Simulated assay, not measured.
Amino acid sequence: MPNRVIGIRHRLIQWRATRHWGRLARKVREYDLSTLRKLRGSARHLRAQLDHVIRVADSRLALPMVGSNAFPKPLFCDWSYRPELWRMPISPIGLAAAPTKSTFGEEVMLFHDCRSSELTVRQVRNTREDDLAPFGLRMDVFRFDGSFLSLVIEMPAASVDDLKQRHLVRMNAVVEMEKKLEIFTRLNIKHGPNTEQLVRELPFEDLSEDGRAEVEVEFDLAYTNMNEKRVERMWVDLVIENPEMSQIVLRDINISRRPRAEV
């Protein structure tokens, strides 16, 4: 149906309407007052409908496009990725009293050890002009009686294709918080029976007045004992410290990698 709206019939109607109103506009100074009054009413009604279409279209077209994988990438980047949750609509869209091991789409899983979950998680549509990701993830935490809260984000198989110790892996995030929290990110790389882990704290020194920050962390694989021939998979953990009575919105998460410059 949407395709038919802008099909041949629509173009024909539009051409006739444009021709009709163009003819009226050229002769508008010749009409008597009674005819002008009726014509003005018709023109105002038409303008109201056109203004509504333009207003809604401008609003929707201003949003980040669903499926967008666009974000700044480092020089010589050989792989980059925005996980599904921040790129496409997921199912379920959200959960109240979310239990541990809840999944959101195919790549994100929630972990916590609360005895009674008072945690709500929901995918939201990003609408700000400077948002590059189409979607974000909002977490509302009320009473929290657990010792940890984390999100596990699975990377696709392409993330470890030809992965070497000379690679640098970068994670960029756009975060909004009601109060300043400590959030750590842990890069995990499984190779054979072993798993390499690198941990970085997200730097929130430049938190804006509305609690928004764009942050970046890098992991240098030269500091690992990764067996390049046996790399199987990669995933990222986001660990949130003391989240009680807070709201966290992850507006964007994206990962990229690049080889270190040869010396």
Results as ranks from 00 to 15, higher is better:
residue 14 Q to T: 11
residue 260 R to A: 10
residue 51 D to E: 13
residue 255 I to V: 15
residue 78 D to E: 11
residue 225 N to I: 00
residue 202 L to H: 10
residue 228 E to I: 08
residue 139 M to I: 14
residue 136 G to L: 14
residue 123 Q to H: 00
residue 244 E to M: 11
residue 148 F to W: 14
residue 130 D to E: 02
residue 245 M to C: 08
residue 170 R to K: 04
residue 94 G to K: 01
residue 178 E to Q: 05
residue 158 A to C: 06
residue 200 R to T: 08
residue 82 R to Y: 03
residue 188 N to P: 04
residue 154 E to F: 05
residue 87 R to S: 15
residue 46 L to I: 05
residue 140 D to I: 06
residue 180 K to W: 00
residue 39 L to G: 05
residue 248 I to C: 08
residue 73 K to C: 07
residue 142 F to H: 12
residue 238 L to E: 07
residue 42 S to W: 02
residue 78 D to W: 11
residue 40 R to G: 05
residue 82 R to V: 15
residue 200 R to F: 03
residue 10 H to P: 00
residue 92 P to Q: 08
residue 42 S to I: 04
residue 156 P to F: 12
residue 3 N to G: 03
residue 47 R to G: 00
residue 188 N to R: 14
residue 220 D to M: 04
residue 30 E to C: 09
residue 13 I to F: 12
residue 12 L to Y: 14
residue 148 F to N: 13
residue 124 V to Q: 02
residue 191 H to M: 10
residue 187 L to N: 02
residue 168 L to Y: 04
residue 163 L to I: 06
residue 258 R to S: 07
residue 31 Y to A: 15
residue 76 F to I: 05
residue 72 P to G: 06
residue 220 D to R: 10
residue 151 L to R: 15
residue 76 F to W: 07
residue 263 V to D: 01
residue 139 M to Q: 04
residue 196 E to W: 02
residue 59 S to C: 04
residue 215 V to K: 05
residue 167 H to P: 01
residue 161 D to A: 07
residue 138 R to C: 03
residue 57 A to L: 13
residue 178 E to F: 05
residue 82 R to G: 04
residue 172 N to V: 09
residue 184 F to L: 03
residue 254 N to I: 11
residue 161 D to M: 06
residue 205 E to N: 07
residue 125 R to S: 08
residue 13 I to S: 13
